[in-house]
Design a protein around this nucleic acid. Structure first.
Lengths: 218, 218
DNA sequence: TAGATTGTTAATCGATTAACAATC
DNA sequence: TAGATTGTTAATCGATTAACAATC
């Protein structure tokens, strides 16, 4: 009934991709080991936090040397489920949807975008970044054929709820929601909402505080 | 020296934009009051959390009725600094940069994107969603002329550091960083990093857990 | 060896949730 | 009035940070 999927270690999980970036860098440098201290410095974090976060992946470090780079990359990818490929579709091939279709980074994370859907007849039949665009009305027909597991929802917010219902009917198990609408879905459907506005809220508040401090100094 | 701008109530701040959406909806419905309970139900949150969050804006509710809608909208906007307009530029008019340039939602938040910069000569001189594109090399010259305060950084990550340096030289005070690079900036520069990968990390982990529970039921 | 770095256990900090009197 | 909803104060929960022995 409740679809509050509380995930343990959520803050740690959200930091792991940043660690992975740095560790992959070290890997391409040919480094065998990388220490938590080095990762922490790179990201302005505390070394103890990095060690605690890495501990959840099950990897064991060597005192004095750090963590074995190759093992660490694999352990993080395994922990994040990024070693498994997931087929995804973009629903709403507007500005944001098109951008995400072409986001190369996702390929490294096992996220494979294989189709997009849009209502615009002039887009249907063409491709964005190599991804074919299908008519939105045929979504419930095509998604099962493609065996897509993930829907990336980037329709304008007035259409979010109804489109979401179609997606669920089509058998999608997991929705990455870029609209500012809270979706109502059955309990077994996974939803992660990406909220760009909340990022701007943080930025704007920090600017307000900075301005206050500035004028206070006069 | 340290640019760890710790903001109090960060989790509350990040939830406020969602509340604002719902409250504006109520406002356009002509509602005079909205209760924390209603907001909470809409977002699958606890009413006490909504009340606590709204308390930081300084607004006072009426027992039995809830919060006055018009006052609440203004109070949240004021608290978030969204009542102040900020001029912004997009640096890197690729897929994501173009998408953000056309993101209408931002206008409602006082974020006014007035220019974009790119290295691609075929883009320079044209516009994206009405936003003029300038050559990236002229960034340090043009930004001061435009009196932009915010840079939205959407260049490919190999160029993030050097571009960031130019941005800082140009006098930008605040950077919304969409690259996966941790930027090195002077202490007085505000940075908020938006990390799309961390969202996918959460989604992928939730999918892994769901799969585990499923197979456990057999 | 000496010392940087680890993993573990405990302490602190902050955020969420609970309890409840006040009130329109 | 009765009861839904508020704001406040306290309790709980979870995340971060500190301390430190173990070790390569």
């Amino acid at each position: 009934m409740t679809n509050k999927q509380k995930v343990s270690y959520a803050p740690s999980i959200r930091r792991l991709p940043s660690y992975l970036n740095i560790i992959r860098h070290a890997q391409s440098n040919g480094d065998q080991f990388i220490s938590g201290t080095v990762i922490a410095n790179e990201l302005n974090l505390e070394p103890i936090q990095v060690r605690k976060d890495l501990a959840i992946t099950g990897i064991i470090g060597k005192p004095k040397k750090g963590y074995p780079v190759n093992d660490l990359v694999l352990a993080i990818e395994r922990y994040l489920g990024w070693n498994v490929e997931h087929k995804a579709v973009v629903v709403g091939a507007g500005n944001l949807g098109s951008a995400l279709s072409g986001y190369q980074e996702f390929k490294n994370h096992g996220l494979n975008i294989i189709a997009a859907f849009d209502t615009d007849p002039s887009k249907v039949g063409s491709t964005v970044h190599g991804v074919p665009i299908y008519p939105l009305e045929k979504l419930e027909e095509i998604i099962p054929e493609l065996q897509a597991e993930i829907a990336i929802l980037t329709v304008p917010s007035p259409f979010a709820s109804s489109t979401c219902d179609s997606i669920v009917k089509a058998g999608i198990k997991s929705i990455w929601n870029f609209t500012n609408i809270k979706l109502k879905v059955p309990a077994n459907i996974i939803v992660w909402r990406e909220d760009l506005s909340s990022g701007y809220a943080m930025l704007a508040v920090m600017m307000k505080i900075a301005l206050k401090n500035e004028t206070a100094e006069l």
